[in-house]
């Protein structure tokens, strides 16, 4: 709870811009400081999902493993790819994609589902987004077990490039937070958005090189595939894990996209944060 709250406004919906910006910054900072709350809730969500099941959160790992194994075997036959080469690529891609798609879909309902809490206590709204990002990072950590198994089974040693996974993951998490906040805000206002976003995410999965590789494409198609910002986000995380160094072009694309999404989201959040309690 804050010690002093103060709002001021001259007319309908016209808080002074500077005050709106300060309050949005306060919200983001106070939200981050409440890490005990969203940290607990993030774990709680996952324990909840698998409560009373024998394997518990291990199901996260198992599900991804089964998915990667099945697609790996079938598609390596269809695409005529060497399984030693294809399966690690696919498994890592699926792990990363799992994080990305959850980071797009989960925020759709986060404010709507927390409606009770939002209308009962005053807390920074950003905690709900930190919670989602944290929860998905825990899922990602569970899935990394599969990555380790694959390294062992296929005798891969990624070497030093694997260290680049850390900045890659950091960029991925920042973009998950900024886009998540925007999606959550818009979904609270426009209730048609969640199903629209779910459908778009499905299509993005097919458009992003997770099941396939860009070098299977030629000419113009390959160029188009590289215009997809998600391709680069996947690459900066996937390539280090497979022992390769992502090209500078991918790093630059990701940094530009992340910076842009932060600016856009911040503007929206500053403008509409106070309205969310009325919308939910």
């Amino acid at each position: 709870m804050t010690s002093t709250l103060a709002y001021s406004a001259s007319g309908e919906n016209t808080l002074p811009r500077s005050s709106r910006f300060t309050k949005a910054v306060d919200d983001l900072r106070d939200g981050l400081n409440a890490w005990e709350l969203w940290g607990t809730l993030g774990w709680h969500d996952l324990r909840q999902r698998y409560r009373r099941s024998t394997f518990g959160p291990l199901w996260l790992t198992l599900s991804t493993g089964i998915m990667a194994g099945a697609i790996g075997v079938i598609y390596s036959e269809i695409f005529g790819q060497e399984i030693h080469d294809y399966l690690p690529f696919l498994a890592v891609g699926l792990i990363v994609w799992g994080f990305i798609s959850a980071s797009i879909i989960d925020p759709c309902y986060v404010f709507i589902l927390s409606e009770g809490v939002i209308r009962q206590v005053r807390a920074p709204l950003s905690i709900h987004i930190y919670r989602v990002v944290w929860r998905n990072l825990i899922v990602l950590a569970h899935n990394m077990v599969i990555y380790v198994i694959i390294l062992v089974v296929f005798g891969i040693w990624p070497g030093a490039p694997v260290l680049l996974f850390i900045p890659g993951l950091l960029l991925l998490s920042i973009s998950a937070f900024s886009t998540g906040l925007l999606i959550a805000l818009l979904s609270a206002r426009f209730r048609d958005l969640p199903p629209i976003i779910a459908n778009i995410t499905q299509i993005l999965f097919l458009l992003t090189p997770v099941l396939w590789r860009t070098d299977q494409l030629t000419g113009g198609r390959r160029l188009i595939a590289q215009l997809n910002p998600l391709y680069h986000i996947v690459e900066v995380v996937r390539m280090p894990l497979l022992g390769k160094i992502p090209p500078a072009s991918s790093w630059i694309s990701v940094i530009v996209v992340v910076a842009l999404s932060c600016v856009v989201t911040f503007w929206f959040y500053a403008r509409f944060r106070a309205r969310i309690a009325y919308w939910v």
């Binding site: 709870m1 804050t2 010690s3 002093t4 709250l5 103060a6 709002y7 001021s8 406004a9 001259s10 007319g11 309908e12 919906n13 808080l15 009770g116 939002i118 209308r119 009962q120 206590v121 005053r122 106070a274 309690a277 009325y278």
Partner: peptide
């Protein structure tokens, strides 16, 4: 008063720790 609804018009100043006990 609890700071849950920020009014679009007017000013609110609250000094002290507020605890709403609604539900």
């Amino acid at each position: 008063m609890a700071g849950i609804y920020e009014p679009p018009a007017g000013t609110v100043e609250v000094e002290g720790r507020v605890a709403p006990l609604f539900d």
